[in-house]
Design a protein around this nucleic acid. Structure first.
Length: 653
DNA sequence: ACGGTTTCCACT
DNA sequence: TAGTGGAAA
């Protein structure tokens, strides 16, 4: 649950951008004759015409809904154009949409901090850009305002839905006596309109956007006027917007928590939440969730936009519904092979283009037991250290599967006896960290160039032999840096040619070594504890920490800089050393490797760095969420499963 | 048989 | 803590 932090939530300018029926747009760009026609994207069409995963707006007018079947859609809209998702390795292949999403992100990330929230959504923190704009251009002196900006929906303004709306909006935008924060919002709206036009020009995709003072309100606004429109949440509109809003419309409240609010507390609208004290909500739902609820009811959300353009994990999965359920180990292995090959390809791509390695492999499955009626037992998910190479990944996945299956069946049944069926399989890679060399701007600074060059090495098993020796043993310390080096150094990759992965295939030997940022005080997650204190005390703890580190004199990043600026290959040597020690004894703890302590990096040191590196380092320093200190068990242990009596008692108290 | 992903939270 | 389950979009 994102933590709300009132003290930062009111003056930022946040935009949320959402691509309109994205998959449909991608297909329409590929086949322009589909433009203007009712269109939907389906995956697999043999069973009832396939399942719809995106519906164009023309088709929506005819009543076509997402997650209708293709046949159903044909019924309500006979002229509908159904485009199939590409199939690769016998499964749906979403890579063209992922790549199209990257195109968009690379444009939207041009202004302000950008967070890729999903395949087709981003958040932008435009605070700085908006402030800069307002400083140099007083809005009231603005003579030409782009059409796209004038088409904005400004909540709270009474619009007629006609052309003189634009004049009303123009007036609002240029009002001399407007609240400063509304002026900033106006700047945000101008910037977002510009970005949206740029996206359209460069990608042919339309998108919708919301501009507000925090992520929650921006996201809410985006959905209010689609497609290809933008909505601004003015200060004055917040109360009226939230009060009548059904609780389930809020992000995070669409599921069980929202249901609990409704059935246990009788809260049906966001306004209904206002009557509950923060303490009460905390008591009911825990410290974090309680505070979060209390805040969002008031339009407050301190949830920050993370500078992250790349995803945190990769997964490949497929379901095998009904008849298709897999009933033999051979069948499972066959499909695991397909899934692992896709995953491996994507990992390889990530390694080569973004210089990132994943550290954990996880297998998920869904299964039933035909013997038991107690078939709703869950197949356990299993994970292990990730070794690179499709063959290794497959081998490990099969092992994880077998471990899961044994557990699923219990020690009595022999897996070979059958009686089981697998209805879903997926493999995923997570704990992805940047290799702080190569792409990272901090090392580029020392080397003056990218050391990495792609050499062709097609054999999959040899692709990244040394990567195998990475990590797992170093997790205990290494993982705390999983957030490192992203914002400043990273770029979104754009691949129009997805069939040419092999040209990226390269033996990534040297790249495999890692430098870990660790927290020396054995704080496993420095960011967590940082935010925890921030939450209560504002910036105090951060300042204290700064002071404390200053006194130590040599911050470790300074040491790093001094040590390595001597020789141009200092970093590389360090990496080589590290790698060697790893190869020798990968299970042994590494004592003298390159680690710097996030906590020790001093602000004044950061300011001395070149701007691109500052940006990078700041992402390491950004404070994080607090841990939930209240045990769930001490409040409502499982608020999702209260019985009737408990519920009524709750309501009374 | 609401699919394929991806992210985040919390318990243990 | 890593592993695991689960919710949500």
């Amino acid at each position: 649950m994102p933590v709300a932090r009132p003290e930062t939530s009111d003056s930022r300018i946040i935009a949320h951008v959402d691509m309109d029926c994205f998959y449909v747009q991608v297909e329409q760009r590929k086949q322009p004759q589909l433009r203007g026609q009712p269109t939907a994207v389906v995956q697999y069409n043999s069973w009832k015409g396939g399942g719809l995963i995106a519906v164009g707006y023309e088709a929506r007018k005819d009543g076509v809904k997402r997650s209708m079947r293709g046949d159903e859609a044909k019924k309500v809209c006979p002229q509908i154009q159904l485009v199939q998702v590409p199939v690769a390795r016998g499964k749906a292949d979403l890579s063209i949409y992922r790549n199209a999403g990257s195109e968009v992100v690379s444009i939207l990330a041009r202004k302000g901090r950008c967070e890729r929230a999903s395949i087709d959504e981003v958040y932008l923190d435009l605070t700085d850009a908006a402030e800069a704009m307002l400083k140099e251009t007083p809005l009231e002196s603005l003579e030409s305002i782009d059409e796209e900006v004038l088409k904005s929906h400004v909540l709270g303004l009474s619009l007629n839905g006609n052309d003189d709306d634009k004049e009303i909006v123009r007036e609002w935008l240029t009002r001399r006596d407007a609240d400063h924060r509304d002026k900033l919002l106006a700047c945000g709206a101008i910037i977002v309109a510009e970005l949206r036009l740029q996206v359209l020009r460069e990608t042919e995709f339309t998108c919708s956007a919301g501009v507000a003072h925090n992520k929650m309100l921006a996201k809410l606004a985006t959905g209010m006027n689609k497609p290809a429109q933008q909505t601004i949440v003015t200060l004055a509109s917040v109360k009226g917007l939230l009060e009548p809003l059904p609780i389930k419309k809020m992000k995070q409240l669409g599921g069980k928590l929202g249901s609990s609010l409704q059935t246990d507390l009788g809260v049906n609208t966001v306004g209904d939440l206002l009557q509950f004290s923060e303490e009460k909500l905390q008591h009911l739902y825990g410290a974090n969730t309680g505070t979060w609820l209390w805040n969002i009811a008031r339009g407050i959300s301190g949830d920050e936009v993370e500078g992250r353009l790349l995803s945190k994990s990769h997964g490949s999965g497929k379901t095998f519904p009904g008849m298709q359920a897999l009933k033999t180990l051979a069948a499972v292995e066959k499909w695991l092979k397909e899934l692992c090959e896709e995953l491996s390809e994507r990992l390889q791509f990530d390694l080569e283009t973004n210089k990132r390695v994943a550290h954990t492999l996880t297998l998920h499955a869904n299964a039933y037991k035909s013997t038991d009626t107690d078939s709703h037992k869950k197949f356990p998910s299993k994970s292990c250290p990730l070794r690179y190479g499709a063959g290794k990944i497959l081998e490990d996945s099969v092992n994880l599967f077998q471990a899961g299956l044994r557990e699923f069946l219990g020690s009595y049944t022999n897996p070979a006896d059958g009686g089981w069926g697998i209805t879903g399989l997926s493999v995923s890679a997570s704990k992805i960290v940047a290799i702080p060399s190569g792409t990272s701007s901090i090392t580029r600074y020392f080397h003056g160039r990218d050391r990495f060059s792609a050499s062709s090495e097609p054999s999959d098993e040899k692709l990244a032999p040394e990567v195998d020796n990475l990590s797992p043993s170093s997790w205990t310390e290494g993982h705390s840096a999983s957030h490192q080096i992203e914002c400043g150094g990273e770029q979104t990759q754009i691949t129009h040619d997805t069939s040419s992965f092999d040209k990226y295939e390269t033996a990534c030997k040297d790249e495999a070594a890692e430098i870990c940022l660790t927290s020396k005080h054995h704080e496993p997650q420095p960011r967590l504890s940082e935010k925890e204190r921030n939450f209560n005390d504002g910036k105090r703890s951060y300042e204290q920490k700064r002071k404390a580190t200053k006194e130590k004199g040599t911050s470790s990043i300074l040491r790093f800089l001094q040590t390595n600026s001597c020789s141009s290959s200092g970093v590389q040597e360090a990496l080589d050393m590290e790698r060697e020690s790893l190869t020798k004894s990968q299970n042994k703890r590494r004592a003298n490797t390159w680690r710097y302590n996030v906590d020790e990096i001093d602000q004044s040191v950061v300011e001395e760095l070149p701007p691109e590196i500052q940006a990078e380092v700041r992402t390491w320093l950004r404070p994080q969420k607090q841990a939930n200190t209240v045990k769930r068990g001490s409040s409502i242990a499982h608020y999702f499963s209260l019985n009737r009596i408990e519920q009524t008692n709750l309501k009374k108290s």
